[in-house]
Design a protein around this nucleic acid. Sequence first.
DNA 1: ATCATTGCAAAAGCTTTGCATAAGA
DNA 2: TCTTATGCAAAGCTTTTGCAATGAT
Lengths: 143, 143
Amino acid sequence: MEPEVAIWREYLKKRGMRKTPEREAIVKEVLSFGEHFDVDSLWLRLKKKSGVSKASIYRTIPLLIDVGLITEVYLENGHMHYEYVYGREHHCHLRCTNCKKTIEFSDDRLTAIEHELGAKHGFVTNGLKVEILGLCPKCNRLK
Amino acid sequence: MEPEVAIWREYLKKRGMRKTPEREAIVKEVLSFGEHFDVDSLWLRLKKKSGVSKASIYRTIPLLIDVGLITEVYLENGHMHYEYVYGREHHCHLRCTNCKKTIEFSDDRLTAIEHELGAKHGFVTNGLKVEILGLCPKCNRLK
DNA sequence: ATCATTGCAAAAGCTTTGCATAAGA
DNA sequence: TCTTATGCAAAGCTTTTGCAATGAT
């Protein structure tokens, strides 16, 4: 079993929460998604198989964030997106403001900056999100 | 007159858009705000004076973003916030996930990373947003 | 006189919630 | 058995939009 699933089940058990087929299906789907997702795309995938309701997805997502498996991603789309983050240090995006194409990257200098700034202001830091906006080669050519 | 106001009027004129009392009031209020704001807080401030409707605020904000006076800020509050950015190079936040206290900072290394990554992927970059999340000294003590 | 802009209220879209039913532990 | 979790539908919020009236140029 993936360690993520074990962590998840442990999280539930510790709080007297139940291991239900719906929660299992959601976690499994999130793990297999391997990219950004939103509630609707997750629901569409799940519908084909197990028929989990959107309400359950909305109720499960805060738990997945709390346990550290996913994080919120703010795209310029009017609704929330999420990404799988367990075991990844930070989550940076280079995004085209025109076609929304997104390239993920990471850079050790960012981790250094995170820790430096945290120390300077007395924060215990817990993650770094970076978005670089611009036009991708294709959209730049067209404008 | 502030250069921002001149830029704004120029922007409108160029597109055959009109200089209305409502738009003037909105820009003036945004310039005087000097901090993060959202539609509701802007509307409350404006209501006392000129009575601009929320619809007009919602219709004006994309223009202010387009002209480069403000940018969207994603807080974990379920609705959009904005900040004044004209003449500022980039906009980085160190934010407490508990009490939402936010410290702004900037770091030249980030600009370097922006340009490097843009060049690497052929993007024409146009801005960088950084959020470092964590617990501020006060909230960290309480937990 | 035109035609962009406004305000209002309705609509839209995402997310949350109340409640009766189902089902883990 | 005792609660927690689910699904559905309704409610809640923010944001967008249609339309008649207003007003800038």
